[in-house]
Design a protein around this nucleic acid. Sequence first.
DNA 1: ACAGCATTCAAACGCTTGTTTAAATCAAGC
DNA 2: GCTTGATTTAAACAAGCGTTTGAATGCTGT
Lengths: 214, 214
Amino acid sequence: MNDQPDTRTRLLEAGLDHFGRVGFEGANIRAIAAAAGANIAAINYHFGGKRGLYLAVANHIVEGIAATIGPLAAEIIALAARPQLTPADARAALRQFVRTAGRLLATSPKAERWARFILREQLDPTDAFDLIYDGIMGRMHRTLTALVAAVLELDPESETARLEAFSLLGQAMVFRFARAAVLKRLDWPTIGDGEADKIVAQLERAVARLGVRS
Amino acid sequence: MNDQPDTRTRLLEAGLDHFGRVGFEGANIRAIAAAAGANIAAINYHFGGKRGLYLAVANHIVEGIAATIGPLAAEIIALAARPQLTPADARAALRQFVRTAGRLLATSPKAERWARFILREQLDPTDAFDLIYDGIMGRMHRTLTALVAAVLELDPESETARLEAFSLLGQAMVFRFARAAVLKRLDWPTIGDGEADKIVAQLERAVARLGVRS
DNA sequence: ACAGCATTCAAACGCTTGTTTAAATCAAGC
DNA sequence: GCTTGATTTAAACAAGCGTTTGAATGCTGT
């Protein structure tokens, strides 16, 4: 019978959308409630207020990302933890990672909303930032660092390895965060499968270049 | 006597700060006016309203960036336009560019506010995006594309060259946009001169790797 | 069928918002 | 010194905000 999620979940989805688009201060709970097909008071009932909904959305994002990239992440983490990881193996794993994650980041509507919310939280971090960092960003970056370090034959704890991981992350995220400029400069109407192919190819080039000396 | 800028300018500066921090919808003109030491009605008088101030801030940013990186940009553009530009020359120019621009982006308080405002505008572009893209981003990316193409010996009009330029841009911007995560992951209290050195070194590594084959 | 609890609902509450108004103040020009 | 125009000011406006309220509804176990 009930083919749609419950009020709580619908509010989280609508909140993710609105908060991501106009920020915490800019969002208004009447619009969120309307988009969720719920009563205004439901937000206070379920989450204790606007701020409570915001934090719950942050948690919702962490769970959503974990559920989406969980299998891939587990595989990569297991691989990165192997003691006798060769640079070539690490590079292959890294290539696999950017292929999957890059495509997801570039095309998935869910990823679009996640990225919007998270980026806003970066701009002025609140309590929600810690939820997201500890839940997803931190461990993802740690895994990436391990792989990059293996490719470059660096100490995985070294500052350089961490910086290199951020560089790789930046190359993937620019196509998400600077989307408006990307579309305009490349004269793409939108980013569909064909455009995602080109972005993924660019990321693979970045991985291929990692650590080769001139 | 008058050692501070006029009301109009103070409103632009305060607006840049507030809009960048909480977005257009989240900002409130009373706080902006108070920060500028001006009356609320001054916003309507000088800019015709909140939206008018927002667009004026976008223009203010374009002018500010142009004034700041103008000399460097002119130098690089002249160089990139040379017909017989060798890959080595282009690489040297690119290195010079990331050195200066990277440090500015990483440490300058002005650049911090610019980046915040611009990034928000990327998240949901309005009229202000066109002002910023046409005024700064577009031509900066075009110049970057020309240099990258020269290094990689690509057609400067090719899609690949443009994608490569975005990759480089992403590597520089990630340290600005994902600052909260960067600070936490690298255990830096803030980004001062020492930290900027390391970021610039990372960017120089990216330039050095450009186009070398494995 | 009923009681108990969770959930939803419409209405109202102060408070803050962007904007408008009309008077006050300032700086030149003649 | 007075006039003209530009600028600043305090006060008021209606509309929108997040939150609270108390009654209505739905669901579950007995």
